[in-house]
Design a protein around this nucleic acid. Structure first.
Lengths: 147, 147
DNA sequence: TTCGGTGCAAATACTTTGCACCCTT
DNA sequence: AAGGGTGCAAAGTATTTGCACCGAA
């Protein structure tokens, strides 16, 4: 899924949900789609140079997460980070590598959890819809020069 | 590891760290060791019938987490939950099944992530120390009578 | 024109900190 | 006796809510 396809899907989903295509929403989606790593509300606030009210950012993030256009994750920092969802027909998703030393967050492609789950007995007849996997450890930079 | 062994390990670790064996700490450890599921600070506060100050609970949870006696996890609720750590010589750990309908949290034993990782290339030479896996979905009860 | 969206101010939720007193060692 | 631990009050972050105005459809 290219960046343009993603933005198009975003706009189509907004329309389909009867939501207006406003400036804050488009700026925010564009920002998240372009980002290398999950962004917090504060991150977005700073990157938009305060053009968008922080409250609007929170409200927009909630709306877009509800529409499943965004994924919300907490990495042990005390606040949430958001990133674009994989997309509807996209079975591909990624997870994250969190450096416990410097706090950097990198993507980790090639998830094998779904394959793993087919070989595992899930207790209580629990019906799995999705999963979150986060690997904690030390990034390359911090291995050579620890903070 | 039995419940008694665990409590003993807790006390030994406290002593070794030069920390005093106080009532709040023992009550809290006992409560967590006996609990079926991860507890929040608020949960603990209610279960101790307010015998322990909420601030003390927060401080104690932080201390015990720092000593790696507890594990802290966020399940998308907006606050942290705590549970006893697997233990030093214990390679066994478990993950969680979170019902998106009723919010129940159940344990999920038999983690295969470590095995999976040996067959996976981790990018950027990232050195993995630990991981967190959470399965989201619908519990048995909510499958028959959705909320 | 209509009604959803935004900004501002204030409130809420969770967690941390400062300080005096308490109690384990 | 000494110093870490606790409780109380207050502060600090992250996030949400109420309400009047604004602007996309």
């Amino acid at each position: 899924m290219t960046k343009d396809e993603r933005l198009q899907w975003f706009e189509a989903t907004l329309e389909q949900a009867g939501m207006r295509r406003t400036l804050p929403r488009r700026i925010l989606l564009r920002l998240l789609a372009a980002s290398e790593r999950p962004l917090s509300a504060q991150d977005i606030y700073e990157q938009t140079e305060s053009d968008i009210n922080l409250v609007t950012i929170y409200r927009t993030l909630n709306e877009l997460t509800r529409l499943e256009l965004l994924i919300r994750t907490e990495f042990g920092e005390g606040f949430y980070r958001y990133e674009p969802a994989p997309g509807p027909s996209d079975t591909d998703h990624h997870h994250h590598l969190v450096c416990d030393s410097c706090g950097s967050i990198a993507d980790f492609e090639g998830c094998m959890v779904d394959a793993m789950l087919t070989q595992t007995t899930i207790p209580h007849n629990f019906q799995v819809a999705s999963h979150t996997l986060t690997l904690h450890g030390t990034c390359e930079r911090c291995q050579t020069s620890p903070k």
